[in-house]
């Protein structure tokens, strides 16, 4: 009799957990839902059409962590995501012969953002994370569309005093047609005039920073030099002229 009651209780507990998880996913999806998004095929006037044919197609460098996604694993000490938050996907990578499971949360509207921006720009993924992790995340964000083919990882970064920095001239020598979207000003310290700052994201389902950037990136296509607009960035760190060691 006790065994039967225990079985029934376990079954009910499992059922309740399933509905709890389903409710969390549904409520999170509803929080993420935005009615007003962006039309990717807004028609252009003849003047802007001619302008678009004149200027070059630009390159948009995308960071991953805290910009498009946020990930954590079981061994992390500081909890940046509330426990119980359902992750969008999980990846398993082997780091130094230890298998690590990452729970990855996608920033709201990242899939829509990538599908729209890939029509306007050549997309490049540049992350300071390791290649085995960055490749898995980029594959999941790509979803087989082939829009994130060019990838750069930690070995392509430059080790500076304050951390890793990303060399944009290694991606394309012409700096007038390349811009980087990153949450960390230290990453683009050497190229402050090519940066689009974005706040860091951890788990807020109401975040609309990627949707905010869509009209901005649409209009940025029509510049002959992206630095005409991006050089007005106030959040860039001052470039260090010379690093002195004492």
């Amino acid at each position: 009799m006790t065994t039967i009651a225990q079985s029934v209780f376990c079954f009910l507990a499992g059922f309740f957990n399933f509905f709890l998880l389903y409710f969390r996913k549904t409520s999170r999806a509803y929080c993420k839902y935005q009615v007003v998004k962006y039309h990717s095929n807004i028609p252009m006037s003849p003047l802007t059409t001619h302008r678009l044919l004149t200027v070059k197609r630009k390159i948009l460098v995308l960071d991953l962590d805290e910009t498009l996604i946020h990930s954590h694993h079981d061994g992390v000490l500081r909890q940046t995501v509330k426990p119980g938050t359902p992750s969008d996907f999980t990846i398993r990578v082997v780091i130094d012969r230890h298998p690590v499971k990452f729970s990855v949360h996608e920033r709201p509207h990242v899939d829509y953002f990538l599908s729209v921006v890939s029509q306007w720009y050549e997309l490049v993924v540049f992350t300071a994370s390791m290649e085995v992790y960055g490749t898995s995340v980029a594959d999941r964000l790509d979803r087989g569309r082939g829009i994130l083919k060019r990838r750069y990882f930690r070995q392509h970064c430059t080790m500076e005093v304050g951390g890793y920095t990303k060399d944009l001239s290694a991606i394309h020598p012409d700096l007038s047609s390349i811009c980087i979207l990153d949450n960390s000003p230290g990453a683009y310290r050497k190229f402050p005039h090519n940066a689009i700052p974005i706040p860091s994201w951890f788990s807020d389902p109401n975040d609309t920073c990627l949707l905010n950037l869509l009209p901005f990136l649409d209009a940025l296509r029509f510049t002959s030099d992206v630095r005409s607009v991006l050089s007005r960035n106030m959040q860039a760190l001052p470039e260090t002229q010379s690093v002195q060691y004492y």
Partner: peptide, 14 residues
């Protein structure tokens, strides 16, 4: 000139 075309596209979008 870049800012002019930037503004023109923003106006078209809205």
């Amino acid at each position: 000139e870049d800012l002019k075309f930037f503004e023109k596209r923003l106006t078209e979008v809205i």
